[in-house]
């Protein structure tokens, strides 16, 4: 028996409130600066920053600026032309890792990449995409 399918779309616009900590982070990105928060109890440094440490159940008020460079923890490749390479990047001094795109790297070289640095866009708007991608660092 052949299928009888009804095709439909769901198309809804959203606007997410980022909160204080992420607002500072996003505003910082427009200035090529990376802001993190540090929990006063467990000393974890969170990027993206958050205003509250869920592990210690306490507010976080301490800010740290981190270098735009870190360690590539892991990566994955989505086949496309050109391929989309996503990396899990731990910025120096952070305890958490960021997901972002990787660039300036050939697929066959990925296995050897250890250190990466942020490559900033010219036209920054206060978005995570103000970092165009992370590229291999020497």
């Amino acid at each position: 028996m052949s299928e009888w399918i009804v095709r439909q779309k769901i198309r809804i616009p959203f606007h997410y409130t980022t909160g204080r900590a992420l607002t500072r982070f996003l505003t910082g990105l427009a200035e090529c600066r990376l802001w993190a928060t540090r929990c006063g109890e467990c000393a974890r440094v969170y990027v993206p920053p958050r205003s509250f440490c869920g592990r210690c159940w306490r507010e976080i008020t301490e800010w740290r600026e981190l270098p735009a460079e870190g360690e590539l923890m892991s990566y994955t490749v989505r086949p496309a032309d050109p391929p989309l390479i996503l990396g899990l990047i731990r910025l120096d001094g952070a305890d958490t890792a960021l997901v972002h795109r990787l660039g300036e790297v050939k697929l066959e070289e990925l296995e050897r990449v250890v250190r990466v640095r942020a490559v900033w866009r010219e036209d920054r708007t206060g978005s995570i995409l103000d970092i165009a991608y992370f590229a291999p660092a020497r």
Partner: peptide, 8 residues
């Protein structure tokens, strides 16, 4: 604080 748009 900043708001980020997203289209589902």
């Amino acid at each position: 604080t900043l708001r980020v748009p997203f289209l589902l």
